[in-house]
Amino acid sequence: MVAVLLSRLANRARSSRLQFAVAAVLASQLAASQLAAQDVIPRLTRIDGQANIELDGRLDEAVWQQIPAFDGMRVVSPDTLAESSLRTETRIFYTERGIYVGVMNHQDTDTLVARMTPRDTRLERDGVVISIDASGDGLYGYMMRVNLGDSKTDGTILAERQFNMQWDGPWEAYTSVVEGGWVAEYFIPWSMIALPQISGDNRQIGIYMERQVGHLNETWSNPALPSTVNQFLSAFQKFELEDIEPRTQITYYPYVSGTYDGVDDEAEMRAGAEVFWRPSTNTQLSLSLNPDFGNV
């Protein structure tokens, strides 16, 4: 009887060890698959040649229908991280000239909030933001926002959440009200972006999308990065690009101003420009021609 009991206990022990070994193997395989999934970086769609896009705030060109849309927005202000109550369909592709972004914001048109303001004015209204981690490593990036009505806000970003709103880039964006909501359409030239030198043909950039919904007093984003978390720039969604090289960047801002003295009946005209030349990613030369400090 004792021998039988010992035999049964031994069999149970062997069975337990086998079950534990199987569970350990399954857990190991699951962890490996999750790690592999994290290492897979999606590629942005590249369009060779001319995209034939008329930047007008409407996604009616045929090329937009070839680009897959993504959403994934969550509420980050207030910081609930709940799924967004309305769809936001974002499409992104690039050419050798730059990045095109099209965003369809589904919303009842009776609830739209459009307010015209000067550049870089913060105000509650409907707007869309794209931020780009150009370094691919969370070191520096750019923020570009267009509001319904075409008012713009932009700035540079340093890790993790240091914004410099003094920067004005030569990107373009337009909006329009359409059936079922409103559309934002961007073009961001590569010549504006400081891309690091890399070895090989493939590079990574990070992308962060944000939508402000004025009538709800809410802000949504993908990835969900509320101001209550420490990570921001380094947590952007990574995408892979192919065969895009840094370009010499030159930006200029001409101006014309005039004054009139009604007492002496005298008029004075002034003209000049601010020129910024970036021959490499870590060097920038600035030139002022007859500067008007009221303009700068």
Rank of each mutant, 00 (worst) to 15 (best):
N105V: 15
N105L: 14
N105E: 04
N105D: 06
Q107T: 07
Q107K: 15
Q107R: 15
D108F: 00
L112W: 07
L112C: 11
R115D: 13
M116G: 02
T117G: 00
T117A: 12
T117F: 10
D120N: 15
T121H: 05
R122S: 11
E124R: 07
R125V: 10
D126W: 05
D126R: 08
G127Q: 14
G127I: 04
V129G: 00
I130G: 06
S131Q: 10
S131D: 05
I132S: 05
I132G: 05
I132K: 06
D133P: 00
A134D: 04
S135Q: 08
G136Q: 06
D137G: 04
L139W: 01
Y142C: 05
Y142M: 09
M144H: 07
M144L: 12
M144W: 06
R145D: 08
R145E: 14
V146T: 13
N147P: 00
L148Q: 08
D150L: 04
D150G: 03
K152F: 13
T153G: 00
D154A: 12
G155Q: 02
G155D: 04
T156L: 03
L158H: 04
A159N: 14
E160P: 14
R161V: 11
R161Q: 13
Q162Y: 11
F163M: 12
F163W: 14
N164K: 08
M165R: 06
M165G: 01
M165D: 09
Q166A: 15
D168V: 15
G169Q: 03
P170Q: 05
A173Q: 04
Y174Q: 15
V177G: 08
V177D: 08
V178N: 00
E179V: 01
G180L: 02
W182C: 12
V183F: 00
A184P: 08
E185P: 07
E185N: 12
Y186H: 08
Y186Q: 10
F187H: 04
P189L: 06
W190P: 02
S191N: 11
M192N: 10
I193A: 01
I193E: 06
I193K: 10
